[in-house]
Design a protein around this nucleic acid. Structure first.
Lengths: 166, 166
DNA sequence: GAATTTACGTCAGCCTTGTTGACTTTCCAA
DNA sequence: TTGGAAAGTCAACAAGGCTGACGTAAATTC
């Protein structure tokens, strides 16, 4: 992006008040963002943690447990509890690694893909509505600011599969 | 297939892939958004719930308990647990309502304001850095999309106190 | 003035999802 | 052969959601 004045804040008048509005916007928007999947999950025995696992396994089929740990930023005990129920319920398959047999490669089963679709359909519908209401320029800005707000490590996780056409 | 990067005039041709990136951007950015306050809170006996309470009492001094319940969207039992520790620790003062003595008007004490300052300084610093890196146009888009993503009720809470100068 | 409603507080118990610590099994690689 | 990484498991605990039930004071309504 072209940044005409990287020199300082002179162009961007950032009062505490404006920043506070941004902070609250994040708070309220994130609630909306999770509201639809949460409603679906609550009818089952699952929670947001299951959603996250299913999402990232869907995004990167065959990913390992440690990989998932790095992305989700939780302990293996915490992830394992969630993963175990998903495997037991037949939503996720954990295949022993071909090259390194210590690893477990994670895949969604047909049933798991069904849940993933249901959840992401709901979440995408809201995202799509917001994008349409805001317009293309706003969408670009939205993504730019969010990216700038991430921790460097998180940004790497995010961008790591940004062009996942490989 | 490769996703055409939505640049400029590209009308709202929203592929699932683009929406997925938006979803993940929200996930990773929200983690960054809460990371700094979380680090501060974790050294004390407080958590994110305390932060939220302190934030909104700071924003609306004298607000009532039911008001706070509506904004935070939790049960009174849940809020009360948090509020009680804040009052006990001398961060929040709960004055009996002057007009309606059933109500409790909530205020931050000097000590409470100190914590609020510490937390919001950290959060604002990150927000400010992201805003500067992204530029004014991106910031406007960011806010527009976030607003569109909120539930109508939440949006009302958000806009309800827009008045202060902005 | 009595009855009802409202605002708030609290006790008790449950769930999800995070944590730490300790231990085992498997298996790659030096 | 041995060290250590990867994964799984058990146990215990905490934060912070939730529901239900109950109590009290104050306001409102009948």
């Amino acid at each position: 992006m072209a940044d005409p004045t990287p020199s300082g804040e002179s162009l961007l008048f950032l009062t505490d008040e404006q920043l506070r509005k941004g902070i609250e916007a994040m708070f309220f928007a994130y609630r909306g963002f999770t509201a639809d999947p949460d409603r679906i999950l609550e009818t089952m025995d699952y929670g947001r943690a299951h959603h996250r696992a299913v999402h990232f396994i869907h995004r990167s089929p065959g990913t390992t447990v440690s990989n998932l740990l790095a992305i989700l930023g939780v302990t293996k005990q915490s992830l394992n509890r969630v993963l175990r129920t998903l495997v037991d319920d037949g939503l996720v398959e954990a295949r022993v690694g071909r090259k390194d047999k210590r690893e477990r490669n994670l895949y969604l089963t047909a049933k798991g893909q069904e849940l993933e679709r249901e959840l992401s359909d709901a979440q995408r519908a809201r995202m799509r509505a917001a994008y349409r209401a805001a317009g293309p320029q706003a969408v670009a800005g939205f993504r730019t600011v969010l990216e700038a707000m991430m921790d460097p490590d998180q940004r790497r996780q995010y961008q790591g599969l940004k062009e996942s056409g490989a």
